[in-house]
Design a protein around this nucleic acid. Structure first.
Lengths: 134, 134
DNA sequence: CTCTGTGCAAAGCGTTTGCAAACGA
DNA sequence: TCGTTTGCAAACGCTTTGCACAGAG
């Protein structure tokens, strides 16, 4: 994965901080600000939290990164992918992506409500297989 | 609707402020803190925002009230009802309740992911019939 | 009478802003 | 070189806390 091209595609100048942000998001899948900042700090001890905020906000504006609001948790960030749902394990907090076919659902809602549906946010709360066994 | 019984059921003492909070939530369906506070202020000019926060937090803890997190908007509060989805009009901000049968979806996810699903949060973004015509 | 709720002010916390210096193109 | 990004500190806005007084049971 070439993060340089990706950043340039979104008109974001290449900086070491940004490359690392993208790398962490890519590898972690979902990260909240604090986690991200902690990891970045290891590589850039002088890094400012403000820089992380500025970059995430910018990347979200450009729709290169997406913010995922999880009930009762801090927002997490992910590289923007095709629309998908999230399953959150209420015990360990792990977040799993889930590609759902919501076509039927959306068609159904369109006819019953007469709304034009643009997007859907689906978050499921559950217990992951690992936590079930504990 | 007898709000007094309802409050007592949740072990909440009856106060004029609380009765009015419940009344507004009941009539509005979905309200954010600012709206709620503005309306309450008309009846209780000395009301403190802190009181509204304290009460909402308490009512949410007791699951009498639910917080609904909407992407790119402040949370709104509603009296806890049976699980349902929300459609948000991206133009006018109106929120509509939608009772969806998610049984198929949930069963499907349970088998494919092996997660126990406890609850689901579904928010749809769209354009309401009224805004479509403008 | 006792315990809880209210209102006020202050504190707390996460996020944003302004600015000078450093850096990327 | 010029415009952007960084890091720092201060400001900001929302939410929570502590406390004295008022009110509910």
């Amino acid at each position: 994965m070439n993060y340089i091209d990706t950043l340039q595609k979104y008109n974001l100048k290449i900086t070491p901080q940004r490359l690392e942000i993208v790398d962490i998001l890519y590898k972690d899948g979902h990260t909240n600000i604090d986690n991200l900042y902690d990891k970045l700090k290891q590589k850039f001890p002088t890094l400012s939290l403000a820089t992380v905020y500025k970059n995430l906000n910018l990347m979200c504006e450009k729709d290169f990164v997406s913010e995922v609001k999880i009930p009762n948790q801090k927002s997490v960030y992910e590289l923007t992918k095709t629309e998908h749902a999230h399953i959150v394990c209420v015990k360990c907090g792990t977040i799993l992506d889930l590609i759902l076919n919501t076509d039927d659902l959306v068609t159904n809602i369109k006819t019953t409500t007469d709304y034009d549906i643009l997007s859907s946010v689906i978050v499921l709360n559950g217990i992951c297989p690992r936590c079930k066994d504990i």
